Simulated scan of single mutants.
Amino acid sequence: MNDLKRGGYHAVTRLRCPRAEEPGPGFEEDAALLFLERLAEQGRVAIISADGRTNPGEARWEFHLLPGMGAPEESRERIRTAGASAGQCLCLAVPRLCAGGLPVSEEEFPVEGTGTLVLDWLVEHGMTVFLKADGDRPALGWTLLVQGGPLTELLRNGGRTAAACLHSLLPKLHERGLVVPV
């Protein structure tokens, strides 16, 4: 992710999110993505990221929950977890979220759906992924960055939902010779 932060790639492609009525391949039903959205709706900044250059078997995914400016004062704890998959990383966060006083049920373990499986697929193919649900904005916004591996440029996408961002990413990956199996 350091290359993403430093702008290590010269070419940047901005992706346009599709209209809300355009369906994705089940992205809008992904419980893990909806879980991130729910946290952001509470005024927090939720980030899940992974470095595709990490050795297989290592915990490559990280989840960060930051208290946005709109988060209630009593629950301003920062939370960080790491896991082998995007879904596992989020599941490890739930007990910490409960202990931190966030309105999350212990039974509310995010199940990996199509969206998180696509994120895992990208990382397995050597790409670095950064997905942020920003509840600190006036209107909830998402940022998706993908780079590395077979990509020669940074792909950047922003939108109102993770589903829309992932849906519009697929054709751009296909144009670059990457066919995601969804």
Rank of each mutant, 00 (worst) to 15 (best):
G148Y: 04
R38S: 10
A133P: 00
G141S: 13
P181H: 13
G52I: 00
E107C: 02
E41V: 00
R14Y: 06
E74Y: 06
T152C: 02
W121Q: 05
M127W: 06
R76V: 01
E106Q: 03
P25N: 14
N157R: 09
Y9T: 06
R14P: 02
W142H: 02
G57F: 11
P72T: 07
G158P: 00
E124P: 06
R176M: 03
N157K: 02
V104R: 12
E106M: 08
P18H: 14
A50G: 11
A163E: 11
L154Q: 15
P181L: 14
L90G: 06
H174G: 04
E112M: 12
H64N: 10
R78E: 07
L65Q: 10
A84N: 00
M1V: 08
H167N: 12
L34D: 05
T81V: 13
R19A: 14
R14V: 07
V182L: 13
T81E: 04
E41H: 07
E73S: 05
P72M: 01
L36F: 05
L66S: 06
P18K: 08
L178T: 09
P56Q: 10
G158S: 11
H125R: 11
E112F: 01
E41N: 04
L97E: 02
P138F: 08
G141M: 03
G135L: 11
A162Q: 06
P103W: 02
V182G: 01
G68Q: 13
L144H: 11
G115C: 05
W142C: 02
C165A: 15
R38P: 00
L34Q: 15
L155F: 07
E21W: 15
I48G: 02
A11D: 09
P95W: 09
D51P: 01
F63V: 02
Y9C: 00
E175N: 10
A11Y: 06
E74T: 09
A59Y: 02
T13F: 12
A93Q: 05
P181S: 10
R16V: 09
V12N: 13
T81A: 07
W142N: 04
R6A: 14
L102I: 01
I79F: 07
A71R: 15
L170C: 01
E62W: 08
C98Y: 07
L34G: 08
D136T: 12
E58F: 09
P25G: 08
K172Q: 14
N157T: 12
R156K: 11
A59G: 03
G158E: 13
